[in-house]
Amino acid sequence: MNNDVIAVVAGNEITETDFAAFTKNLPAQQQAYLQNPEAVAYFKEQFVALHLFAEYGREEKLTETEEFKAIMKQTERDVLSQLVMQKIFKDIQITDEDAQTYYDANKEKFQKPETVSAKHILMDTEDTLETIKKDIENGVITFEDAAKENSTCPSGQKAGDLGEFGRGQMVKEFEDAAFAAKIGEVVGPVKTQFGYHLIKVEKRSDAAIAPFTDVKENVKNTLLREKQQEAYNKTLAQLKEKYC
């Protein structure tokens, strides 16, 4: 690792290694700027400034104040607690086999609901939408072009495409019509609180158990959290017995 000296403050060298450790603790949004040389130079200036202000604080004997001592006591508590957490969690691992066993025993938790993929055209007037529907059925215009030209919904810019959705995600009138429609059939106008809709279902997926490969990482994360919580509770009980 590059250990070039960035600056010297009160006889102490501040190196690139020190700066790298500093940047790891920056918020993710700020870390993104580290690709910019000007931003790196700015952060280095701020890093050196921290050392300068800290040195001034020592000179002013702020380390001897009760406020400093209280803050350091709280900081020590927080850091030690975090290090202990890392220690009790470090050996916890969840294998693919662990996840598979959990999945096999709890498949009902991975039930994918019935869904449809649909497009729609939204307008304020039913009569106009009826005319558009006839034009679509007679081949005068495609559903997609009609959506682009007439729909008042932002999805009109995407040819009316709403993507895939399950029950409970749309208003009831729209949902009932969409789930009752045949694939490729144009249904409506359907009245909802938003206006009148023509609906065209593109695809239907029946309820099914999600395959293990689709949920493996979620299962592993769930098991990891459970194991960590168990380790936390066990250690906490031991510490209460020891120190309380």
Rank of each mutant, 00 (worst) to 15 (best):
A49H: 08
E59V: 08
V5T: 14
Q46M: 15
T128G: 13
E60R: 15
E149V: 06
S155P: 00
L223S: 03
Y42G: 04
E13M: 07
N106T: 08
G166V: 02
E66P: 02
T213Q: 15
S205M: 13
E67V: 14
N218H: 07
A208W: 04
A180M: 11
D176R: 05
D124R: 12
Q228C: 13
K87W: 07
V171G: 06
L223N: 01
R58Y: 07
I209P: 04
D176T: 13
K234F: 06
I71Y: 11
A118Y: 14
Q229R: 11
V215Y: 04
V5K: 05
I88S: 04
V48S: 06
E230N: 06
A181G: 13
D78Y: 15
K148S: 12
H120E: 09
A10M: 12
V40A: 05
Q35S: 14
K69S: 03
K191R: 09
S81C: 03
K61F: 03
C153V: 00
A7K: 01
L50Y: 10
A118V: 08
I132W: 06
N218C: 00
K44V: 05
T17H: 11
E66Y: 10
I136D: 03
E175W: 00
A21Y: 10
F89S: 02
A159V: 00
Q86I: 00
M85D: 13
E175D: 08
F212K: 07
M85V: 13
E67F: 06
Y33I: 05
F89I: 06
G11E: 11
I71M: 07
K133C: 10
E59F: 10
L239R: 15
